[in-house]
């Protein structure tokens, strides 16, 4: 199962576009959090005590970030020549982009957690 997933991950290609997936998910979650709180407060006038939609979206964002981080991790370990991977080759560029994506995924994961944390403590719309 894991091996199959890994093979699938290896077949995907990390590019500059996939590099921005984790921070984009983080930004989208950030925007969603504010909109969710603002719209809820405007429509119902009270802050939700069990915000199911919010946590579902947070978990979804975390899963997407985790997945893209994991794919990046697999690709950053593309076998081949010895380190340091600093040549202007396709493989080295792939490793670099994948490694950067993985680091960004880590940052975005923590960012989403930090964004979501206040909801645990807020209890009304003031």
């Amino acid at each position: 199962m894991i091996e199959r997933l890994r093979a699938r991950a290896r077949s995907l290609n990390v590019t500059l576009w996939t590099l921005i997936v984790p921070p984009t998910v983080w930004a989208a979650h950030f925007l969603f959090s504010y909109l969710w709180a603002a719209i809820r407060c405007a429509k119902t006038g009270s802050f939700s005590t069990a915000p199911g939609v919010f946590w579902a979206c947070t978990i979804l964002a975390l899963l997407v970030i985790l997945a893209s981080g994991w794919i990046a991790r697999v690709q950053s370990r593309t076998p081949g020549d010895h380190p340091p991977h600093e040549e202007g080759t396709e493989t080295d560029r792939l490793r670099f982009l994948a490694y950067a994506t993985m680091l960004l995924a880590g940052l975005s994961f923590v960012g989403v957690l930090f964004t979501a944390a206040p909801v645990l403590f807020l209890s009304d719309c003031r």
Binding site: A117, P118, L120, F121, L122, S123, D124, R126
Partner: peptide
Amino acid sequence: AYSLPAMRP
């Protein structure tokens, strides 16, 4: 985590 409880209204 230390500062968040201060947000509680």
